[in-house]
Write a protein that binds this DNA or RNA. Structure first.
Lengths: 205, 205
DNA sequence: TGGAAAACATGACGGTCAGCATGTAAGTTC
DNA sequence: GAACTTACATGCTGACCGTCATGTTTTCCA
């Protein structure tokens, strides 16, 4: 018999908290925000409603915590990948692929659910905005390091254009748009970006 | 006293139907899909729950009808604006502005709500997909007419890139992102598009 | 002009939700 | 090891939801 049943309070707290947040994200991805109920989350996390009551005073607070949990994961994943990228033109294309991978996965799906919900929920919006801005800024920082020679201003433009394009494409993917077309569009955008990159580095205005 | 109280059956039917659909869209925009209830819609439309029951057998059917109502409006608006556009490079920039206007307004907000909801609602998704595809194709048709000299394939690329970028920007707007930055990004994209347009028309591969 | 039919209103029903009160078990502190 | 605190479970409650059965008004038509 191991004494594996013994956990310190902090461990217990952290474990069920993480279980709840992960379950929340799963719910958002699988059934959507509108049908994500506390009961459903509890069932998936394997805890009772009393537990979530103990950790989060209201449902909105749980959602807010889920957002942070989510963006933390996304940030870490993007940061790791971006840091081992080659510099220069080929790096630009690779960076775009990475941004697409980051913004088209399940994590981003959950974020989109929360975003849209936050539009009409002031409390949720207040919770989301800062972490989202932090995610954007942190990612931008890594990206500008990759595109070293490019003027920061132009690198930022390229970055944000890519992010917004990617999010639009992710939305299309969620609705079941044509994957081949998305692939072609992304390739085309990479071509354009590399072209612009070359222009900006060889003939700076 | 006018006899304005007299309405033919068809008129009555059409009026309350339109009132319900408009109220549905208002609800989607103002309170979001998750909190859009039949009661709320009825209250805004000034009818009873029995009325919606009479016109639509289930809530999903009402939503589906709202989608069609919505895209019909969007299509008409975009088609009208696009037809009176100048041809050539300046037309490209103007077309991008129009697409942005179309996809950033309240109509598009409602569509986004439904889209995201449809991701986890097969019935709703089945209702949305065809009308959305029709909207895309119809708009594309108008756009390709504007960019006459451009090879259709490249015009299509530019169109879809613009649409997806615009939708990403619209999402950012919904979350309260910086409007100035969006403006700058859109201007930058217009510059790029005009540049690409010029390249493609002067030196076709 | 009166009856049929369509359009709409009213009220009720089963179900689910979030939040809370209250109870119990596990860990901590002395 | 006993008092105490934290972590979690259970059961309830009032509110709201979508749907339906049934009643009322308006239009139509012969």
């Amino acid at each position: 018999m191991t004494e594996s049943t013994h956990r310190t309070q902090a461990q217990r707290r952290e474990q069920t908290r993480a279980a709840l947040l992960d379950a929340t994200i799963d719910c958002l991805v699988e059934v959507g925000y509108a049908r994500t109920s506390v009961q459903e989350i509890c069932a998936r996390a394997g805890v009772s409603k009393g537990a979530v009551q103990h950790h989060f005073t209201a449902k909105a607070e749980l959602m807010a915590a889920a957002v942070e949990h989510l963006t933390t994961k996304l940030r870490r994943r993007l940061a790791e990948s971006l840091d081992e990228l080659p510099r220069g033109g080929s790096g630009v294309a690779a960076a775009i692929d990475l941004l697409w991978a980051g913004y088209s996965g399940t994590l981003s799906t959950a974020v989109t659910e929360l975003w849209v919900a936050a539009r009409t929920d002031a409390e949720l919006r207040a919770a989301i905005r800062p972490v989202d801005r932090a995610l954007g800024r942190a990612t931008l920082e890594h990206v500008t390091q990759v595109a070293g020679e490019l003027p920061p201003e132009r690198a930022e433009m390229l970055f944000w254009l890519t992010v917004h394009l990617t999010r639009g494409l992710a939305l299309d993917a969620e609705l079941g748009g044509d994957p081949t077309r998305r692939r072609r569009l992304l390739d085309e955008w990479k071509r354009i970006a590399v072209l612009l990159y070359a222009d900006a580095t060889t003939a700076p205005s």
